[in-house]
Amino acid sequence: MLFQRPSDDILYDALIARDPSYEGFVWVAVKTTGIFCRLTCPARKPKRENSTFYETIAECLEAGFRPCNRCRPMLKLGETDPVVTRLIDALDADPMRRWSEGDVSALGVDPSTVRRAFKRQFGMSFLEMARLRRMGKAAEVLNDGANVIDAQLDAGYESGSGFRAAIARLFGEAPVRLRGKGLLRADWIDTPIGPMIAIADTHALHILEFAERKALPAEIRRLQEASGSGIVMGRYPPIDEIEAELKAYFSGQNKGFRTRLAEHGSPFQRQVWQALRDIPAGELRTYGALASDMNRPSSTRAVAGANGANQIAIVIPCHRVLSADGGLTGYGGGLWRKRWLIEHERRMAER
């Protein structure tokens, strides 16, 4: 079931009061500075509209925020594991470093011990945390107006050739070899819950996914095969349109999405995706209820499969579907994002 917590207004009051009762349960992320803090942090308090509250450090990192240097939210108060402290200090000193298990061993620490300690305290391994710190730093560079390629290089590719190799693995061919072909364009869209990648042609949006979705490379390969097109970094109008609509959505404006979508999927899948779009923001369905809404009560399993095949996140709101017992399940962008989106839309509906 969804985790119940105090409202953001109550949490903001606790932030202003530096209330220690939420220590270890809630952290505040500040949009204007890109950092996250304990609620007891001695730093100057942010404005209400610039404050976002998260229930785990992992969520803060996954959303692209970096830890505060004053209150050091990554370290537990009172019971600090010396192994954790040592590696957090090393990570704070060089957040752009690409760590490996060999680097951990070189510090005289057993990698399996480190993995268990970080999983126990943060719910993620040290190497996962280091990767998220690099991504957060890259997002910060992008926010400062840097070129997207420079940001990706800063995120951990030691050379231009390394970046081109990564693009080749993702899009199938090195960009220089795609000249003269029919091209789709791809670009990053930054959101409060992590970067998304959008792929479009001149008329419609083909893919909108969180960059960390494991199925993204397979989706891109299928798109290339189906369209016969190469993909290069850049923008067509549908990407600008969906970015503006996402900005309104994340700011709490429930205006809906009007960007034209490409017609992928089987007729049944498209029927499921339209049924998802018919669910009002702030409301939820189970897979069975969605099948009944479509007058296909015996097709629950097929509906769930079509739900998972959706490659237009948020716009086709597969996050509004729960398991039969009302629990969170099956979201490619991560269950923490699914919960965030549900709570965000609940607040929008209440307003």
Rank of each mutant, 00 (worst) to 15 (best):
L153I: 14
D293F: 04
G78C: 02
G194A: 10
E101D: 11
Y249M: 09
R38F: 14
L61I: 09
G145A: 15
M124F: 06
S229Y: 05
P195G: 01
A204S: 13
R339E: 15
R260N: 05
G182P: 00
M135I: 06
Y236M: 09
R347I: 12
A204N: 02
D190P: 00
S299W: 14
K31Q: 14
L284V: 13
L276T: 07
V321Y: 03
W27N: 06
F250V: 12
F118N: 08
R185K: 09
I35F: 12
F118A: 12
C68P: 07
H344K: 14
I57W: 02
T33R: 07
R44H: 08
I207D: 05
M124Q: 12
V272L: 15
S323G: 15
L208N: 06
D9I: 05
A117M: 07
A302R: 11
K214I: 03
G136E: 01
M129C: 05
A211W: 03
P192H: 04
L11E: 04
E101F: 08
L153A: 04
R66C: 05
Y157I: 09
I231T: 07
L205D: 05
S105D: 03
L153F: 02
E173Y: 12
R260K: 14
E219G: 00
L205S: 07
R270P: 04
P82C: 02
I312D: 03
E59W: 02
I88H: 04
S266M: 01
I197N: 02
M233S: 04
A174P: 10
R235S: 08
D278L: 07
S159M: 14
R116Q: 13
M348H: 05
P42L: 11
H344E: 11
L2A: 01
F36Q: 08
S112M: 07
D278R: 07
R270A: 04
C68N: 13
G230L: 03
R116G: 03
A90L: 10
Y157L: 12
R301V: 15
D103K: 00
R260S: 08
F171Y: 15
E23Y: 07
S51K: 09
I316K: 06
C37A: 01
R38P: 00
I193G: 01
A43R: 08
T202M: 06
I199N: 08
E173I: 11
G327S: 15
G234M: 08
N295M: 02
W273P: 07
A117S: 14
N295L: 09
S7H: 10
Y22F: 15
P195L: 08
P267Q: 13
G108R: 11
F163Q: 10
S21V: 08
Q269C: 00
P267F: 12
E241A: 12
V148K: 10
H319T: 06
I16M: 14
T80M: 07
M294V: 04
K214R: 04
I316N: 14
